[in-house]
Each structure stands twice: as C-alpha cells, then as structure tokens.
Amino acid sequence: MENFIGSHMIYTYENGWEYEIYIKNDHTIDYRIHSGMVGGRWVRDQEVNIVKLTEGVYKVSWTEPTGTDVSLNFMPNEKRMHGIIFFPKWVHEHPEITVCYQNDYIDVMKESREKYDTYPKYVVPEFADITYLNNAGINNEALISEAPYEGMTDDIRAGKLK
C-alpha cells in the first residue's frame, strides 16, 4: 500500500460533483468537497479503513459524525474511482448544516443526527475521473489546511497551491 498512502487526488464524479482527498496515512484522510450537495465542506483526520483489493485497486471506507457512510474504490493507474455515499435523510434535506470545517462542529453534527430523521438514506453511487494525482507524503499537515474556495482545484492542478 506504500504507493497509495500519501496520495493527494482530485476527482470529479459523473454527476459533476468535485472532491479532493488526501490519504494521510494508513488509517486517516483529509478531504475537501468543492462542489455538489455539500460543496464547501472540509474535514481533517477522518478515521478510515483502507485496504488494497488487488494490484492498483484500493478501498477507503468510513462513517462520518453526520452518520454518512462512504466507500470509495480508487484505481489510480486508470485515473478512475467508484464511490458510494449513503447520506442520512437529514443531510439530504439540510446539507447546509454540514457545509463547514467539520472538526470545529462535531457536536452540531451529532446533535443534528439525533434531531432529524436518518432514514431513508439518500444513496449516491457514481464513477469519477481522477483529474489530479500526486504523492504528498505521509502526515502532511499543511496540505488540506484551509477551506475550499472557487477555483482552488484549478490552482492545485496548475501547481499554484500544494
């Protein structure tokens, strides 16, 4: 898995949503959501399960404090990814609550999870194209250290932001 750990990727789902992920180490990711239902959301130090399924194929899975479950299959050699996101009903109906730096609002996420309905889940299964791939090393605390802004992914791809 040493080829995958440290990967910094930007990917665009077929529905147009653009996400960024950094595989920080063998059990933690940082990520930013640049567009889509919860565009503007960003998270650091999310605990995840990472496995190598076969040569060049990796699965990253986790449950967020919102109650959202995520499972992503990365195929970096093909610059493709398939993800499935299971949004609780409350996130689908009130996505604006989650559009923040989650680490500062864990209590709000937990309160919302208790206050609003979680079922039925809003399931989003999508393929994505990886439009940026770089290895940023392990535990790079500077990489995802600010909120997403319009044009950020273009700046990253152009080498203006690392």
Results as ranks from 00 to 15, higher is better:
residue 55 E to D: 15
residue 24 K to C: 08
residue 40 G to Q: 10
residue 126 E to V: 03
residue 4 F to P: 08
residue 49 N to T: 15
residue 27 H to L: 00
residue 111 E to G: 14
residue 107 D to W: 02
residue 152 M to F: 05
residue 56 G to E: 10
residue 55 E to S: 15
residue 123 V to P: 04
residue 60 V to A: 03
residue 137 G to M: 04
residue 87 F to S: 10
residue 123 V to Y: 05
residue 119 Y to P: 02
residue 139 N to E: 15
residue 43 V to F: 02
residue 114 E to I: 04
residue 7 S to N: 08
residue 76 P to M: 05
residue 154 D to H: 07
residue 68 T to L: 03
residue 132 Y to M: 03
residue 81 M to V: 13
residue 55 E to I: 09
residue 83 G to A: 09
residue 162 K to W: 08
residue 59 K to F: 01
residue 135 N to Y: 07
residue 57 V to Y: 06
residue 40 G to P: 06
residue 128 A to L: 01
residue 55 E to Q: 15
residue 83 G to Y: 05
residue 117 D to Y: 04
residue 13 Y to M: 15
residue 38 V to D: 14
residue 52 K to R: 14
residue 38 V to I: 15
residue 7 S to M: 00
residue 82 H to I: 11
residue 20 E to K: 05
residue 3 N to T: 10
residue 14 E to M: 04
residue 48 V to I: 11
residue 100 C to Q: 14
residue 90 W to E: 04
residue 19 Y to Q: 10
residue 77 N to H: 03
residue 84 I to Y: 00
residue 57 V to I: 13
residue 156 I to C: 04
residue 54 T to L: 10
residue 153 T to M: 04
residue 107 D to M: 14
residue 159 G to A: 05
residue 157 R to C: 14
residue 80 R to Q: 13
residue 82 H to M: 12
residue 148 P to C: 12
residue 146 E to P: 02
residue 132 Y to G: 13
residue 104 D to C: 08
residue 80 R to D: 09
residue 23 I to G: 12
residue 148 P to V: 10
residue 138 I to N: 06
residue 129 D to R: 07
residue 80 R to V: 02
residue 41 R to F: 01
residue 80 R to N: 12
residue 160 K to L: 11
residue 81 M to H: 10
residue 113 R to K: 13
residue 46 Q to W: 00
residue 101 Y to R: 14
residue 123 V to E: 01
residue 45 D to Y: 06
residue 114 E to M: 12
residue 72 L to A: 06
residue 40 G to H: 07
residue 57 V to G: 08
residue 95 P to Y: 02
residue 77 N to M: 03
residue 57 V to C: 11
residue 121 K to P: 01
residue 66 T to L: 04
residue 129 D to N: 14
residue 16 G to M: 03
residue 83 G to F: 00
residue 104 D to A: 15
residue 92 H to P: 02
residue 162 K to T: 12
residue 56 G to D: 15
